[in-house]
Each structure stands twice: as C-alpha cells, then as structure tokens.
Lab assay of single mutants.
Amino acid sequence: NQASVVANQLIPINTALTLVAMRSEVVTPVGIPAEDIPRLVSMQVNRAVPLGTTLMPDMVKGYA
C-alpha cells in the first residue's frame, strides 16, 4: 500500500504548504504520493483543507 499526503493541520485556502502541515499515511482513496512531499513545499492549496484530509492533485496549485 502506498502512503499518501494527509493534512496534519487545517490548511487555509491559498496557504503555502510546509513540512509541518503534511504527513504521510496509507489511506483510501489514494491521494498525492508521500514521496512528493518535498515537491509540495511552498506550493499553495486552492481550497481549505481540513485536518486529516488526503491531499488530491487538484487541491494543489501547479501540482497536476
């Protein structure tokens, strides 16, 4: 099972992602792969992401 990126805190809309804001977890459905965490740092989310939410490619500006 592949680990996905999960919000480690509430991430407000247009907030730049940080290492502290993300964690890796095996979840269903699978979201952005955990190995992409370094690439996600400083990218912005295009919606509010609640704690525990799996990050999907369409939630991160410039990711997809």
Rank of each mutant, 00 (worst) to 15 (best):
N1P: 14
Q2K: 14
Q2V: 14
Q2M: 14
Q2P: 12
Q2N: 13
A3I: 06
A3L: 12
A3V: 07
A3H: 10
S4R: 01
S4W: 01
S4N: 01
S4Y: 02
S4G: 04
S4M: 01
S4P: 01
S4C: 04
V5M: 01
V5N: 00
V5G: 01
V5Y: 01
V6T: 04
V6A: 00
V6S: 03
V6N: 03
V6L: 06
V6Y: 00
V6D: 04
V6C: 05
A7P: 03
A7S: 08
A7K: 02
A7R: 00
A7C: 05
A7Y: 01
A7E: 02
A7Q: 00
N8Q: 08
N8K: 07
N8I: 06
N8Y: 04
N8G: 09
Q9A: 12
Q9P: 02
Q9V: 11
Q9L: 11
Q9W: 09
Q9H: 13
L10P: 14
L10I: 10
L10F: 15
L10G: 09
I11A: 02
I11K: 00
I11V: 07
I11D: 01
I11S: 00
I11T: 02
P12S: 08
P12L: 09
P12F: 06
P12C: 07
P12I: 06
I13L: 11
I13N: 13
I13M: 12
I13T: 10
I13G: 08
I13V: 13
I13Q: 12
N14C: 08
N14S: 06
N14V: 04
T15W: 10
T15Q: 10
T15H: 13
T15K: 08
T15S: 13
T15D: 07
T15G: 11
T15I: 06
A16W: 11
A16L: 12
A16N: 10
A16I: 12
A16D: 07
A16Q: 14
A16H: 13
A16V: 12
L17G: 00
L17M: 04
L17P: 03
L17A: 00
L17F: 01
L17K: 00
L17Y: 00
T18R: 09
T18A: 07
T18C: 06
T18S: 12
T18I: 06
T18E: 09
T18N: 06
T18V: 07
L19A: 08
L19N: 06
L19G: 05
L19F: 11
L19M: 12
V20G: 15
V20E: 15
V20K: 15
V20N: 15
V20T: 14
V20D: 15
V20S: 15
V20F: 14
A21T: 09
A21K: 09
A21N: 15
A21I: 08
A21C: 09
M22D: 02
M22F: 04
M22Y: 04
R23K: 10
R23W: 05
R23H: 04
R23D: 04
R23Y: 05
R23C: 06
S24Y: 07
S24W: 08
S24H: 07
S24V: 13
S24I: 11
S24E: 08
S24A: 15
E25C: 08
E25R: 10
E25M: 13
E25T: 08
E25P: 00
E25K: 10
V26Q: 09
V26I: 13
V26N: 09
V26S: 08
V26P: 05
V26G: 03
V27C: 06
V27I: 06
V27H: 02
V27Q: 02
T28S: 12
T28W: 13
T28V: 13
T28H: 15
T28Y: 14
T28I: 13
T28C: 08
T28A: 13
T28F: 15
P29A: 03
P29W: 05
P29E: 04
P29D: 04
P29R: 02
P29Q: 05
V30L: 15
V30Y: 12
V30R: 13
V30K: 14
V30P: 15
V30E: 10
V30D: 07
V30T: 13
V30G: 10
V30W: 14
V30C: 09
V30S: 12
G31V: 02
G31C: 04
G31I: 01
G31H: 00
G31K: 04
G31W: 03
G31F: 03
I32S: 02
I32Q: 02
I32V: 07
I32M: 02
I32W: 00
I32F: 02
I32C: 05
I32N: 02
I32E: 00
I32L: 05
P33H: 09
P33M: 06
P33L: 08
P33T: 07
P33N: 08
P33C: 08
A34L: 03
A34N: 05
A34P: 05
A34H: 06
A34S: 10
A34Y: 06
A34K: 05
A34D: 06
E35V: 13
E35M: 11
E35P: 06
E35W: 14
E35R: 14
E35L: 11
E35D: 13
D36L: 12
D36S: 09
D36R: 09
D36P: 00
D36A: 13
D36N: 11
I37N: 00
I37P: 01
I37G: 00
I37R: 06
I37C: 04
P38E: 11
P38A: 09
P38V: 12
P38H: 14
P38Q: 11
P38Y: 13
P38S: 10
R39W: 11
R39I: 15
R39Y: 12
R39P: 02
R39F: 12
R39M: 15
R39T: 10
R39A: 10
R39D: 07
L40R: 00
L40G: 01
L40H: 00
L40N: 02
L40T: 00
V41E: 05
V41L: 09
V41R: 00
V41D: 03
V41C: 06
V41K: 02
V41A: 04
V41Y: 02
S42G: 15
S42T: 13
S42H: 13
S42D: 13
S42C: 09
S42A: 09
S42M: 12
S42Y: 09
S42P: 01
M43H: 09
M43E: 03
M43V: 04
M43R: 11
Q44I: 15
Q44G: 05
Q44R: 15
Q44K: 13
Q44C: 09
V45W: 00
V45S: 03
V45Q: 00
V45G: 02
V45K: 00
N46F: 04
N46H: 06
N46P: 03
N46E: 08
R47T: 11
R47C: 09
R47A: 08
R47H: 06
R47V: 15
R47L: 07
R47N: 05
A48L: 15
A48N: 15
A48T: 14
A48M: 14
A48S: 15
A48Y: 10
V49E: 05
V49Q: 03
V49Y: 04
V49P: 05
V49H: 04
V49L: 08
V49M: 03
V49S: 02
P50I: 07
P50K: 10
P50Y: 09
P50G: 11
P50A: 13
L51A: 15
L51K: 15
L51T: 14
L51W: 08
L51V: 15
L51M: 15
L51Q: 14
L51R: 15
L51N: 11
G52N: 11
G52S: 05
G52H: 07
G52W: 03
G52R: 01
T53V: 13
T53M: 12
T53W: 11
T53N: 08
T53Y: 11
T54K: 01
T54G: 03
T54L: 04
T54S: 02
T54V: 10
T54Y: 02
T54F: 03
T54D: 01
L55R: 02
L55Q: 01
L55P: 02
L55F: 06
L55A: 03
L55Y: 00
L55D: 01
L55C: 04
M56K: 07
M56E: 06
M56T: 10
M56S: 06
M56L: 10
M56W: 04
M56H: 07
M56D: 03
P57M: 06
P57W: 11
P57Q: 07
P57K: 07
P57T: 05
P57Y: 08
D58T: 10
D58I: 09
D58G: 11
D58K: 07
D58L: 08
D58E: 12
D58C: 09
D58A: 13
D58R: 09
M59N: 03
M59Q: 04
M59Y: 11
M59W: 11
M59A: 06
M59T: 03
M59H: 07
M59L: 03
V60Q: 02
V60A: 01
V60T: 03
K61F: 11
K61Y: 14
K61N: 11
K61A: 10
G62D: 12
G62L: 07
G62C: 08
G62Q: 08
G62S: 08
Y63N: 04
Y63E: 03
Y63C: 05
Y63R: 00
Y63L: 05
Y63Q: 03
Y63F: 09
Y63T: 01
Y63S: 05
A64N: 14
A64P: 12
A64G: 13
A64I: 15
